[in-house]
Amino acid sequence: MLNQNNNTRNVVLITMVLAAIAMRLVNTQFPALSNFTPVGAVALFGGAYFTDKWKAYMVPLVALFVSDIIINYLYAGKLTFYSSSLFMYACFMLMVWVGTFIKKVTALNVIAASIVSVLVHWLVMDLPFVYGMPNTWANYGTLLVRAIYPFETNMLIGDAIYGAILFGGFELAKSRYNVLRTERPLAL
Rank of each mutant, 00 (worst) to 15 (best):
N3R: 14
Q4K: 15
N5Q: 14
N5K: 12
R9S: 11
N10C: 07
L18C: 13
A19H: 02
A20Q: 08
I21Q: 04
A22M: 09
M23P: 01
M23L: 10
L25A: 01
N27H: 04
P31N: 04
P31D: 05
P31F: 03
L33I: 12
S34A: 08
N35A: 06
T37Y: 06
T37M: 12
V39L: 07
L44S: 02
F45K: 09
G46H: 05
G47M: 02
A48S: 11
T51H: 15
K53Q: 13
K53T: 12
M58S: 01
P60H: 09
P60A: 10
P60L: 10
L61S: 03
V66M: 01
S67I: 05
I69R: 07
L74A: 07
L74C: 02
Y75T: 14
Y75M: 12
L79F: 14
S83V: 11
S84V: 14
S85N: 11
M88K: 00
A90G: 14
C91N: 00
F92A: 05
M93L: 06
M93S: 00
T100K: 09
K104T: 08
V105M: 00
V105Y: 00
V110L: 04
V110W: 00
I111K: 01
I111L: 04
S114Q: 03
I115L: 03
S117I: 01
V118S: 02
L119N: 04
V120P: 03
L123F: 14
V124M: 10
V124A: 10
F129C: 01
V130K: 04
P134F: 03
W137A: 14
A138H: 03
Y140N: 05
G141E: 03
G141W: 08
T142G: 05
L144M: 09
V145N: 06
R146S: 06
F151G: 05
F151T: 11
T153D: 07
T153L: 13
G158M: 12
D159G: 12
Y162A: 11
G168Y: 13
G168T: 15
G168K: 13
F170P: 06
F170E: 04
L172F: 14
K174A: 05
S175P: 13
Y177D: 15
N178M: 14
L188E: 15
